[in-house]
């Protein structure tokens, strides 16, 4: 989106994107194993937020 981003910044964004993707995958998979409804809800919120974060990071990188 932004045509001129620093090398350092793009490396940071890449690292965050990888980290967030890992978190999202883990939360999505582990949600199925959880029994407590309150924890399930917290995880669903986390999945929604993480998806939004990944979209934001992707937007800055592409």
């Amino acid at each position: 989106m932004i045509d001129n981003i620093g090398v350092h910044e793009s490396l940071e964004l890449h690292e965050l994107l990888t980290f967030k993707s890992l978190c999202l995958t883990k939360s999505t998979v582990m949600q199925a194993l959880v029994t407590d409804p309150a924890l399930k809800e917290l995880m669903q919120e986390d999945v929604t937020a993480s998806s939004r974060h990944i979209e934001d990071l992707k937007r800055h990188l592409t």
Binding site: I2, I5, G6, E9, E12, L13, E15, H60
Partner: peptide
């Protein structure tokens, strides 16, 4: 922690 560190390394206001 990761986000705090990244913030100190960024120069572009939007990011």
């Amino acid at each position: 922690r990761n986000y705090s560190l990244a913030i100190t390394e960024t120069a572009t206001p939007e990011i």
